[in-house]
Computed example of a mutant assay.
Amino acid sequence: MKGFLGQFLGYSGAQLGLLCLAVFLVMAAMPDLLAGPLQTAINATGDFLAPPSSQHLLGTDEVGRDVLNLVVHGARISLTIALLATIISLLVGTTIGMTAGYYGGRVEVWLMRLTDFFFVMPSFVLALVITPVVLEVLGRGGEILGFRPSLFVIVVVIGMTSWAFVARIVRSQTLSLKERTFIDRARVVGTSNLNIMIRHILPNLVPQIVANGALVVANAIYVETSLSFLGLGDPLQPSWGTLLSIAQRAGAASAGAWWYLGAPGLCVLTVSLSFVLIGNALDDTFNPRRRVIP
């Protein structure tokens, strides 16, 4: 474990990514402590579209709300959606990829044709088509598992449309692992196929799943931001994408309110880049062929 951490932290990209990610995780964990309760039009404390000042470090929006307050609270929503969607994506992708690689034959053919469809079709396009339809069926009132319906639907849709990349990688690794000697020994002693996949193959897939999972998070943040920017988010629980959407509708660009668009946009860019750096460093650490001297 110490050797892995030393190798991983030896990459400057990993250090930078972890530092940036730690800052945003603290923001997501303690938004009230860092920036106070979420401001609304009723309890706004500033003037309309006021530029950054000592009182409002990132300026205010079109109703006088502090942009720093909105960005800090938006971190919890954006990161929660991205992480939950990534968990769904990894579970689906790992299950399909491992099943296809282990069983082969017609099972592999049908599962990989399904994977190819989701791989060729951009997840954002699928999410853009599916999300409004599901929202129309469920409605926007009430809560589902602690989320408002719009956010719950975004989490599920992103997770169910972003798994193809993971499935292809897991399948290729499973094809190699199932030919190993320890798998043959497990079959000889009568271990069931399910137990072989869970107890013998899955643990060997974890490094690849973790490394690529970081890249899936970055994509999930991008898709969530895009969907929210197009108006599919929830203004009562604003994410960074929702803030960008509200700023665009308020005419922040034409009014020269660069801070209103720049703050949430920079957060999205920074977090996405952090996960990409971490993912690349993990891949270099786990994969000796890609390993280079930092």
Rank of each mutant, 00 (worst) to 15 (best):
N204W: 10
V217D: 07
G93P: 07
G256Q: 09
W163V: 08
L177M: 04
S245C: 05
V206I: 15
Q248M: 10
N69S: 12
G10E: 04
L236M: 12
S245W: 12
S150C: 00
R199M: 11
L145N: 02
R113Q: 13
F118C: 10
A257R: 11
F182K: 02
D116C: 07
V206W: 14
N212L: 11
T191L: 09
S150A: 15
D66E: 08
V189G: 02
L215A: 06
G190N: 03
R76W: 04
F124I: 14
F8M: 06
I196T: 07
L57R: 12
L18T: 03
V133L: 15
I42V: 15
F152T: 00
F24Y: 15
P37T: 06
Q248A: 15
S172G: 15
Q248W: 11
A127D: 02
L49K: 06
G59V: 06
R148V: 00
N212W: 12
A100F: 08
L19T: 14
A50T: 05
L91N: 07
V109W: 14
Q173S: 06
L232M: 14
Q208C: 00
A22N: 06
A100W: 03
V189H: 02
L57W: 15
G10D: 05
I198M: 15
T94Q: 04
I196G: 09
G265K: 11
G105N: 14
V92A: 12
G233P: 05
P288V: 11
A14S: 07
A35M: 05
T94K: 08
I144W: 06
L145E: 01
D47M: 09
G256I: 04
T285Q: 01
V157E: 06
G17T: 00
T242W: 09
G97S: 05
I87P: 00
L145M: 13
L91S: 14
I198K: 13
V188S: 11
V120N: 14
L83A: 13
A253I: 14
I130R: 07
V155K: 01
L175C: 11
I221A: 03
Y260M: 13
W259N: 10
W240H: 04
G141A: 12
S192W: 03
L135R: 10
D234E: 05
E179K: 08
E179M: 05
S226R: 01
V210R: 04
L236G: 13
L114E: 03
G279T: 06
T174P: 04
Y11H: 10
I198N: 09
S89K: 09
R171C: 01
Q7L: 13
W258N: 08
T174E: 08
S272V: 15
V188P: 01
M98S: 12
R106G: 10
Q208D: 07
H200V: 04
F119L: 14
Q7S: 14
I169F: 10
V107K: 11
